[in-house]
Design a protein around this nucleic acid. Structure first.
Ligand SMILES: [Zn+2]
Ligand SMILES: [Zn+2]
Ligand SMILES: [Zn+2]
Ligand SMILES: [Zn+2]
Lengths: 141, 141
DNA sequence: CTTGCACATGAGAATCATTATCATGTAGCA
DNA sequence: TGCTACATGATAATGATTCTCATGTGCAAG
């Protein structure tokens, strides 16, 4: 359970941390802002200080439990680090976020870094465009 | 000259705009924050309001004269849009920024977007790592 | 089962980059 | 030259995130 996860990464098991982790697992949206997490918890009766949410998220990230993404224009979003690495494509109209993984790109990144004399430690790749989903205003423009 | 550039994109030619454009062209650093631009202008006797710097940069970007990048941890940087498109690799130790262009990655991005039903309009790719440059503290442990 | 202490929490203040306001100045065209 | 829409600058406001500090608590040692 979630208590295990916290212990495994050396964090004390506390009520706010459990609630935040649990929300991240059960929420309908996979990518959430700190504000959203704070509000959703509040609405379901689990009132937690906003500062605590930010602190917990920072610790979860440092511990490798979650990742942080900064999509342009929007605020920082967090998501559970489950499954393999992936990057994102964001609809500039409706905000829909899809995930993808591309081995060709991942490999090229490593080669590029090497050629430039860098030891690659991380990367951020986000594509932006207009989607053709049913909820996208771009469809019935 | 710079006046031409401004006229060509439909912006009035004003003293602050000319000074900012000129600084971007002559500065040693290619990627600069609004603050840095503001401070460097002030130090060279060309005092301009910070708000004006931000406004001008936003207009230059909308006009396609410059591009904006948000490297993680740091603040937004701007650079002249000259020459072909490129992405960046940033040293997480010393902050050094190098540029690169990779056709394989660019092409793959377009394909990925199409496969997901998106019309690609933009992308942000930044690699992070440790460089081996002479100024990098990573070199002398 | 207690106890102690390092660490966690929450409310609110503080910070920092960026944007908005508004009174005044000016580019560019008739 | 004069008009008018737009630009400027000082400053206030905003919004996300972080800090402060008084208080509460997980948990390991006894
Ligand atoms: Zn994701
Ligand atoms: Zn869409
Ligand atoms: Zn660049
Ligand atoms: Zn370096």
């Amino acid at each position: 359970m979630e208590s295990e996860e916290l212990r495994n990464v050396g964090l004390k098991v506390t009520s706010p941390r459990l609630k935040i982790l649990s929300l991240l697992e059960n929420a309908k949206a996979k990518h959430m802002t700190a504000e959203t997490i704070y509000r959703q918890l509040g609405e379901s009766g689990e009132v937690i200080g906003l500062a605590t949410v930010y602190r917990a998220l920072a610790q979860f990230e440092a511990a490798g439990l979650i990742t942080r993404h900064q999509f342009e224009g929007g605020q920082t979003v967090f998501e559970l680090e489950r499954g393999p690495h992936h990057d994102h494509i964001v609809c500039v109209r409706c905000g829909r976020v899809e995930e993808f993984y591309d081995k060709v790109i991942e490999d090229r990144q490593r080669e590029i870094a090497e050629n430039l004399g860098f030891t690659l430690s991380d990367h951020a790749l986000t594509l932006y465009g207009e989607c053709s989903g049913g909820t996208c205003p771009a469809k019935n423009g």
